[in-house]
Design a protein around this nucleic acid. Sequence first.
DNA 1: TCCACATACCTATCATTTCGAGGTATTGTC
DNA 2: GACAATACCTCGAAATGATAGGTATGTGGA
Lengths: 112, 112
Amino acid sequence: MADEKRGNGGFLAGVPELLILRLLQDQEMYGYEIVQAIRQQTGDVITSGEGLIYPLLHALEKGGALRARPQEAGGRRRIYYTLTSKGVRRLFDLTDEWSRVNRAVGQVLRPG
Amino acid sequence: MADEKRGNGGFLAGVPELLILRLLQDQEMYGYEIVQAIRQQTGDVITSGEGLIYPLLHALEKGGALRARPQEAGGRRRIYYTLTSKGVRRLFDLTDEWSRVNRAVGQVLRPG
DNA sequence: TCCACATACCTATCATTTCGAGGTATTGTC
DNA sequence: GACAATACCTCGAAATGATAGGTATGTGGA
């Protein structure tokens, strides 16, 4: 079909990035924590794994949207991330784009 | 960044398929017409081109969601598509999935 | 003690989807 | 006659997500 082998069922283009940025807007978090948070806060609707989240965090950091702060915590090495001003701007842009697409799809789904 | 080279700006995974099915629920349409309709009804927010729509129509037909009916109209060869019962089911499933993801993202964006 | 599990990080590869460029042919307009 | 619009098509590149692995430490139970 339109081949639908997506574990999450599709409709997720760009969503993980948006969610990461939004979560970090409220508080500093580390990667593993973000993976769990997305699962919990979406009621297991979005279950993006570490194989997606970690590379995304690295890309966002390299792009200047996030700042990384390594820290030891009980023998465990964690990397905490915070939003930079660039990240905040990116979050606003993505949020805006998300609602635009949302409205657009809604207009077709339930017309006039 | 998360590299954002999508002409439409992201957030479109699976959306074109959903829109096609929804449009065909109301009336028989041909490919070129669908491309224009998506553009118009979304106010140019979603501008998926023929390079995306035609292959999608073929895949949906092959998958049994659509039935194709070729017809000549004023020297112009058009291929009209209609929904099969399988296509209707697929439309319901995608619509459902779309709102689930929508709610899930919303929960993260505006918590509390 | 040993084993399994949760934590916490990472990469590589594959599948899917979208985008852009290009190609054919007809009709209508300047 | 040239050009835009109509109407179909395919190919290849790029981006994204999913899956499957791989490393290491701490904790709890048998």
